[in-house]
Design a protein around this nucleic acid. Sequence first.
DNA 1: CTGGGTGCAGTTTTT
DNA 2: CTGCACCCAG
Length: 766
Amino acid sequence: MEFQEFSQLLEPRLGYRIYNTNAAGEIILNEQGKIITHTNGPLHIIAGPGSGKTETLVLRTLYLLFVRNVDPKSIIVTTFTEKAAKNIKERIITGAEYFFEHHPKLQESIDIYNLRICTLHSLCNDVMQEYHSPDYQNFRLMDDFEQFLFTFEHSNLVQEDDHYLPVYEQFDYLFEKYDPVSGYRGWNNHQYPPNKWALTRAAINLFNRITEYRINLNLMRESGDSWRLLVEGFEQYQEQLTHFQRCDFSTLQSKFLEFLNTPHGRLFVDGDPENYEMYPRLEYLMVDEYQDTNPIQELIYFSLSRNAPHNICIVGDDDQALYRFRGGTVECIVNFSQRCQQQWSVECTSRYLNTNYRSHEKIVEYCNEYLLSFPQMNMPGARIQNKPRLVFGSQVHGNYPSVTCIRTNTKSDTARQFASMVKWLHDNNKIQDYSQCVLLMKSVRETSRHALQFVNELKNQGITPYNPRSRQFLVQEEIAVALGAFISIIDPDLEGIRYMRGGTAVKNNIGRNVQQWIQEYQRIAPNSAELSMYVNEATRRIRQKQPQEKLKLSMAELFYLIISRQPFSNWKEDPERTYRLGKLSSLFEQFSAIPYFDQNRRSNRGEIWASSRGGYASHKWLMDFYKLFVTRLMAYGENDPEDDEIIAPPNHLPIMTVHQAKGLEFDFVFIWGLSQQEDDEDESIHIECDYAPFCQNQIQNNIACHDKSAQDKIRFYFVAYSRARCALIHLLTQQELRISRTGDNQTGFGIIGRDPNRFRQIVHFI
DNA sequence: CTGGGTGCAGTTTTT
DNA sequence: CTGCACCCAG
């Protein structure tokens, strides 16, 4: 297909054209058109919020397929989340189908299902499987839940002895946090070393960063005792992974990077000219959300596009980087062109998509103003140099206060006014559906500290909130009943809790939860003969067990027998309940799969043995179940299912975290929590700074930790603010604009230039 | 609007 | 323990 036909076909679909014609009739491409048709060498796209970057990526893929006749097998598109991957895939398929309608014959030659559109992690996993990487045969890929259990059980760094004390001292900042589950109060004055729980969390953080930052282990080892011990701990963890054939998410990436330089890997990148059908050559790589890339991912991307002319196309916005906790370093995008020079001595083409097609002019202005009002954002390395400001380009218009502020005495009052405003918008036909609005906040948990007041006031107004990430997994009826029934069988007298050693806080916390589950079970039991008969029968059988006799059923089998009874079989008609029960059973499965540290133990975790006295499950087993599995569930919580297709169910008002809202847009954005203070630096930043000297592809380190932390917060609010189409409404209480709060004359980062007076001038108060 | 005191609850994000 | 929400006095 000729380019002209391609763009003419697209025009009615897009509602705009990607080129103009000059007086002489020649085609003049606009910025987007130049991106779409770029086919030679690295391309660096800086795309602001609402600039249509995903659309551009989709069009570019279609262009490559339909105009340049590139083999779909030679194109890879990666994104940051599964959800985004799915979204792009759907849009490309829809676009391709549209072209097929006009050129049915092309359907035979272009199989769009051969395109790889996925997250980098699934690319690593899939390709190593498909190409039979010898280092990745029969490995179990662990998610973060499993990684936690595995590390807890198998990392020496985590075992409570003094050998690794220097490491704990070196990284004492990882042990400052209060932990409500274990009651851990931080490592004050280094009096009591951190508990195993805190150590596990820290170890995972330290290990993952070593991999993600491509730390030079030799350099690290030679830097002193604590560093040597850290490397020792890391290597021991890696050995355990290999020994048990496990792989975590960061190790997956490092395995893949190594794989790319093996014969199998070269086959994947370079292809096999003899057998092109089977082994195509990788020609085009497109990476979305590049601002969240970390050093090891950067290396993977450079390695994937190592063949000239290095057709790697990266898209992102340095101002929207939100994932430092995952090792993401904004430097990767800021320094991309420099890296191309270093790696390949190739000039990279930079293009800017800075027209905002989303928001009201005043909101665009506000976003620009917000970002640039902070000195931290003007530091070298903070942003891409000479980045243009966002330019208003949407259809949203009207002379009304589009950036406003609701401010009352208390949080409940603010919540009430927020709810009435939403109601008013609906009653006055400013919105047709509540899901055109969103409430953004740092945490959406339904406690008085966070979303509770908002949820209550919305309900008072007859508006149903949609809050799937409030982590209420463990208090959901079906989960509580399932766990209650399970525990009633294996530990009917709660012996396991009674004999639990260690912190009373843990014991009390677990005890309280377990009691609630059992109560939930007992509440429904009288009306659920099927379930209660089974539970009574199973309990009776276990009571008759001889000491140390093996139970007939495994943990998973017992669980399945519980949930196959009424009322569970009825509940299964509810997709949410089914999802949650499925989640619980997969958590059970993951727990069962963690091998015991003590190799002499005679079974795996999934098998339950009677205690030495008989009558209930063995102490050791119960201890693991409560202290490892239950505690971990309590600490992290689990979220409800979310529908990928829709933002919120019709007429529900979504309450979201900023991360959740990333990439989405709403007519009315309400945001609570502008007061975020300059607290202690985030752990991830601290580790990043500490690790920087050992980093192989140098992390830029000329920005101080506290400035990086400030930049992260500014970017966080920038993402939130730029979601709004028609109006952005700040929600505050009176004291949040006070000038001197902590004594050092600073207010929250959500406020322009951290200057309440300036904020008052710019924002319209209602 | 602000200074100061009390009381209470206890992050977030992804593969 | 810390930090925030809230209240009261000026």
